[in-house]
Design a binder for these strands. Sequence first.
DNA 1: CTTATATTTTAGTACATACTAACTTTTTGG
DNA 2: CCAAAAAGTTAGTATGTACTAAAATATAAG
Lengths: 249, 249
Amino acid sequence: MTKPRPELTGQAEDYLKAIYELERGDAPAGTNALAERLGIAAASVSGMLQRLARLGLVKTERYRGSRLTEPGRAVALQLIRRHRIIESYLVTRLGFAWDDVHHEAEQLEHAASPELIERMAKVLGNPTADPHGAPIPTAEGRVDERRFESIAALEPGAGARVARMSDRDPKLLRYLAGRGIRPGARIRIEAKEPFDGPIVLTVGRERQTLAPGAAANVWVEPDASVSAAAPKSRARGGTPKRRASGNSR
Amino acid sequence: MTKPRPELTGQAEDYLKAIYELERGDAPAGTNALAERLGIAAASVSGMLQRLARLGLVKTERYRGSRLTEPGRAVALQLIRRHRIIESYLVTRLGFAWDDVHHEAEQLEHAASPELIERMAKVLGNPTADPHGAPIPTAEGRVDERRFESIAALEPGAGARVARMSDRDPKLLRYLAGRGIRPGARIRIEAKEPFDGPIVLTVGRERQTLAPGAAANVWVEPDASVSAAAPKSRARGGTPKRRASGNSR
DNA sequence: CTTATATTTTAGTACATACTAACTTTTTGG
DNA sequence: CCAAAAAGTTAGTATGTACTAAAATATAAG
Ligand SMILES: [Mn+2]
Ligand SMILES: [Mn+2]
Ligand SMILES: [Mn+2]
Ligand SMILES: [Mn+2]
């Protein structure tokens, strides 16, 4: 039943992926957000969105934003599958550094055939997450879409397990990894300065301080085994904590 | 010293590779030949050649043909290196069929970074030939450029070792492999019918008949150990044997 | 030599993708 | 509710790459 969708360009694929990553349940992906994410002028994005709409891959509401149609979503998920399997393969079979594979995968994802991807996946034992903790969609397009909270959203006293981190900035990844922060790591928030101040946390048994800009790129799931420990002091600050919502970027 | 040549498109790279493969010592690559090889209209090729000339990658003599400049040749050789290492990797590490990798490599060669290629090469132990017997240029751009004779050019009685075969047509590759003809195989020409008739040859100890159209895609090096055996009957035919020249395709 | 054929280039067009500048619509803050 | 700011779109242009049809040049045949 899979229609032989007439070869999309790599560019178009990247747009679909970006929309997938930016639309948030009810909220469609904004043109400016897409433009920034893709490093392309907003005007150009407008144009491309119209083409994608014409192809039935996105639904655009003028001046309001865009969301994927079902076919568009399917394309995006396949691309994401390719990306994440490639990343996994490069790290585990070819010795790439985990902070360095994103860029390579960004290119290869458009050139790798489904056969290649399935062969890689098989060699790897059909992994379900990439090196950065991101879930890998199945060949049928199913994917774990749970959203996690970022470290920046946790309150002092909270314990958590790092589930996933953004792979887009190698420098940031290296910085975080150097502090022991990587998928699977257990952390506990010790203190949090107001006004977007630094976050003090324990990683393993090291105490670390993290800028909220960095913390926003690390998503965690609650971890009861660590949680109960520290004193649940009322958050002291002034700024009303806006729940820094799930896994953007 | 390597100027940061401003990212060529994959298309442009493929043109350069095609020119490399089609120019023959003195003879420049013809526009029509390029067009056929690339599956593109001759008029379009004319246009691209002008752009490549403007970039200093080819030298075109109007109405006469094109040849690579030194920089152009360097680009072509790097592309060929990527192509052949990818083919080798896919066959030996990912279980691809050797008659099936060409198409995949044709895409990946434009997306794979030098780092990826060198990592693959290392894992493979820096191979010097791809699965079809084609030599792999070094990272510095050195390559074995010997030309071999095709089976079609051999006289009855001649013994030879298969050095290399065209990888462009999977069906043909499967056909030939099914007859034991693959790089390294030892053969001997038993008879050759005139007027482009079939070629009778021994592969291992099997006797095979081969159409000249197929034989033209297999290149061999002389093998003295087999050569002396059969009776060197004078070629019987009428057609003056035009030396079917080296490794085209 | 001269013409017919083969090869190659030019002209004109199209599509994908990008840009900047100018304009329109929506959102926000007073 | 309204003006300013933010977000998004349109207009006009550019580049890469392709096409077909027509013209130019080179080569082969008589
Ligand atoms: Mn990409
Ligand atoms: Mn990743
Ligand atoms: Mn190619
Ligand atoms: Mn090959």
